[in-house]
Design a protein around this nucleic acid. Structure first.
Ligand SMILES: NC(=O)c1ccc[n+]([C@@H]2O[C@H](COP(=O)([O-])OP(=O)(O)OC[C@H]3O[C@@H](n4cnc5c(N)ncnc54)[C@H](O)[C@@H]3O)[C@@H](O)[C@H]2O)c1
Ligand SMILES: NC(=O)c1ccc[n+]([C@@H]2O[C@H](COP(=O)([O-])OP(=O)(O)OC[C@H]3O[C@@H](n4cnc5c(N)ncnc54)[C@H](O)[C@@H]3O)[C@@H](O)[C@H]2O)c1
Lengths: 215, 215
DNA sequence: ACAGCTTTGTGAAACTGTGCACAAGCGTCG
DNA sequence: CGACGCTTGTGCACAGTTTCACAAAGCTGT
């Protein structure tokens, strides 16, 4: 978040920023900002603030963003297309270095300037570009297979969009983006707003008379 | 997460589950599972476990998923199309109840069975279906405008895909999905794996000799 | 009816994260 | 060149979360 905010500020011509201002932009506490940034090193100047450009560099260094990370997308369907065709990743340092699928109708088509290749060629795609991050955009049933293929091909980080938990060997980083979960969190808040009266009792008296219903 | 896991288990014909098993599926601690579930009420049976179907119902009730929540998508571009055309939301209780855009070329086209309407008609779309959740899939520069339009139309929850922080009045729930951030987290782990030697010093001696560079 | 086994529900402890408050350090200005 | 104002960096306290550990409770078989 800090990286995004600071990059945006830098674009606007801001060269220096205080923890107070940065906290305001990010909607967090200023002390937290300072503590977070202190993990990078002691790069602020007392009485002045932080040098925006320098801080951007330091955060990028810490996150490993000093060079680009090509990613490979598995599944060239709706989502795979949107992802590959989306320039935003390249801008943020993650160009799409390959797209694979199993559907003969998809193979050979070009999405986002990249030709779709067969899943069997995944290892070749990965090695040719030294790719270490894979994105799963296949249906849920194929997600585990996709993950296994990625791991065999030498991928060590996976971003999973399929709404299923995938199993990977130890040492592989996996992150899951589940849009339905995001919506559920929103619906929970909506629900809460709808009946504030009952909600206040939530933690105090959770069993609200329905106790025996499980019998 | 529990809802998803339990629903999946129920589909597989599992009618009863212990906190131990559920913890295993979710990759968390069994005591945590029990404490989490205890907030819903005391619905387990000692010596036996939890009734899967009943627990699914209880979680749905708590999350406000006893009825469907229609959502409105703002922006009918790549992402808006993928979202509207994606049946997964409807299945999980969030059917797309409307799509709006400002591009005349997009308006009138049909995505995922829904006709794209003009942003000006947002309030009408929202009221006709009693929609309270809006999804922003516009370019970053238009995200704030989209948010303002949603709020004026009466929306109280927003899911934002644009890589920018939006300002909303108090009382509006906002969640942000930033895919670049997910990739950055993965690249951080990759980075760590690449140089474990230096990484061990990270917290102890953060300023590794580059201190003066900001001057 | 009761022993033995299993699993929940939950205090208490351990751990992690957040925020306050202030000394230390830097820049500026008279 | 020293006083003053501003902002960082961090010790400490508080808050929240996770885990442990065990009594309570249900089920099965005798
Ligand atoms: N479309 C969305 O907006 C959206 C949103 C959230 C989550 N998702 C999830 O993303 C995934 C993809 O969604 P989609 O709408 O793009 O689906 P889709 O059906 O349009 O595309 C899936 C693609 O995966 C390919 N595929 C199938 N098995 C494969 C395998 N073993 N290896 C490689 N490729 C394989 C198919 O040929 C197809 O091209 C799904 O799991 C979905 O739940 C999609
Ligand atoms: N495509 C992806 O895979 C992807 C991934 C992550 C994030 N995003 C983000 O999602 C957003 C949309 O991406 P996209 O690829 O679909 O872009 P896109 O350009 O394909 O679509 C944007 C759509 O929004 C419409 N629009 C513009 N201003 C509007 C306004 N004020 N009100 C309503 N509609 C408006 C445009 O007419 C267009 O149809 C962007 O902010 C992007 O950063 C996209």
């Amino acid at each position: 978040m800090y990286l995004k905010l600071l990059s945006d500020q830098f674009e606007l011509g801001i060269t220096n920023i205080s923890s107070e201002e940065l906290a305001e932009l990010g909607g967090v506490n200023a002390a937290k900002v300072r503590k977070d940034l202190s993990y990078l090193g002691s790069y602020g100047t007392r009485g002045v603030g932080y040098d925006v450009e320098f801080l951007v560099f330091q955060i990028k260094r810490e996150l490993g963003l000093t060079h680009e990370w090509h990613v490979v997308v598995v599944g060239a369907g709706h989502l795979g297309n949107a992802l590959a065709g989306y320039g935003g990743f390249g801008e943020r340092g993650f160009p799409v270095g390959g797209v694979v699928d199993v559907d003969p109708a998809k193979i050979g088509t070009v999405v986002g300037g990249v030709r779709v290749r067969h899943l069997d060629e995944l290892a070749a795609v990965v090695h040719s570009r030294k790719i270490s991050i894979g994105v799963i955009a296949t249906p849920a049933v194929a997600a585990q297979h996709a993950a296994d293929s990625l791991v065999s091909a030498g991928i060590t980080s996976i971003l999973n969009f399929a709404p299923t938990i995938i199993n990977t060997p130890h040492g592989i980083s996996v992150r899951k983006v589940d849009l339905a979960v995001e919506l559920q969190i929103l619906s929970y808040h909506e629900q809460r707003r709808a009946n504030v009266r009952e909600a206040t009792k939530l933690k105090a008296v959770p069993g609200n008379g329905r106790r025996g219903a499980s019998a």
